[in-house]
Computed example of a mutant assay.
Amino acid sequence: MHSVQWVDRGLQLNVRPLGEGGRSIGISRMSSVQLPSGVSTLWVQVRGTAGVSAREGQFRLRRGDWMVLERDSRPTLQADRNGICVGVCLSSDTPGALGKGDTPLFPGRGRMSGSDMQIAMRLWRRIGQAADAPGRTRDDLRPLLLHMADLQRGIAAQVHLCPGRSLGRKRHVLARLQCARLFLEGHTDRVVRIGELAELASLSYWYFSKAFQAVYGESPQACGARLRLERAANLLRDSDMIVGEVAAASGFENAGSFARAFRAHFGACATAYRDSA
């Protein structure tokens, strides 16, 4: 059975294991929610921002961002003073509501247009309105899940690049790779070892490295370095941190190595980049 909960004005919600079905959740105005293991989640940031702390790392959701986390993520979300974030928590059997012929949801995050967010909100409200209706089924989740799957079509298009003899195996590998990619995005404050990513994805070192390169067109090391440089660029643009502090916050051992890497990637030194930004 599906249920709906909303927390507001600094309150905290600790979600218990769901059993069969799922739960719609909304958080706003400094409130927070903590999810247990065994629960997959999808989130849409409607207004303001929200902080996400999960096994995959630390993230900041802004208006129009969406995020899908797998069942072992155990995320905690907190809305800012003006933030509104809505989501659906899914028990392990609920994603089957999409149907065998449909593309499943993959871990990941992205942005949606204003019209897509309006559709998502309408479908999310429809789940809540149907929560107490007699004779309701898990199919009430299907329209929202299909909408989110459509937003993930860019991710799903990479399935054919994954190793594996069957479509099911390819999708499983892509889901594991997406978890590792999220881990890189959530840990841009340090260098992440490939062995750590392979263990997270439950794949061998060699198999993981080969599959990651085939799907994303860059090695895990190159992807991690690029994401850390993009974090540094954001810090230069949006904060008052000095260049040395930005380098340390982006996982570089010293200012010299950061300066060389930043110039090679952006074609300008960090100071010039900040001035132009």
Rank of each mutant, 00 (worst) to 15 (best):
Q45K: 08
A270W: 09
F59P: 02
Y216I: 00
R63H: 12
I84T: 11
L151R: 08
T49C: 10
A131W: 04
E20A: 08
N14S: 12
S115T: 13
R171L: 13
G26S: 13
Q221D: 15
D150R: 14
R190E: 09
V86I: 13
G128F: 08
D93M: 06
G101Y: 14
M1C: 10
A277T: 12
R60P: 00
A261E: 12
Q178D: 01
L177A: 01
R274V: 02
C269R: 07
A277L: 02
R63A: 10
D102T: 11
L98M: 13
H187E: 02
L61N: 07
L90A: 08
Q58W: 07
G96I: 03
R62I: 10
S40K: 07
E70D: 15
R142T: 13
A270T: 04
S28M: 10
E185P: 00
H2D: 09
P143M: 08
G217E: 11
L42Y: 06
G38E: 05
R169A: 15
G114A: 06
G128Q: 06
L141N: 01
C89I: 03
R181G: 01
A248I: 04
L13G: 02
L69A: 10
Q58E: 11
F212M: 11
P104D: 03
F183I: 00
V39W: 05
V33K: 03
R171F: 09
S73Q: 14
G110H: 01
A247G: 07
T94Q: 12
G135D: 14
S166W: 10
G19V: 04
L18D: 01
I119H: 11
F59I: 05
A264V: 02
R60L: 14
L123D: 15
S3E: 13
A157V: 04
L98P: 09
D80T: 03
Q221T: 14
L35H: 12
L182A: 00
D65F: 06
D140K: 10
E56D: 10
V243H: 03
K100N: 15
L161N: 05
A180L: 01
S276N: 02
T41F: 03
I194K: 09
R23K: 15
G19Y: 02
R16M: 14
C223R: 15
V7H: 04
R9I: 07
A225S: 12
G99I: 03
A180E: 04
N14T: 15
T94A: 14
R60W: 08
L42G: 10
L182Q: 03
A222P: 00
T41D: 09
F252W: 13
A222T: 12
R260M: 14
G168S: 14
L90M: 12
V15G: 02
E230A: 13
R63Y: 05
L61I: 13
Q213D: 05
Y205V: 02
R153Q: 09
F106E: 00
V86Q: 09
L161Y: 05
G251L: 07
L151W: 04
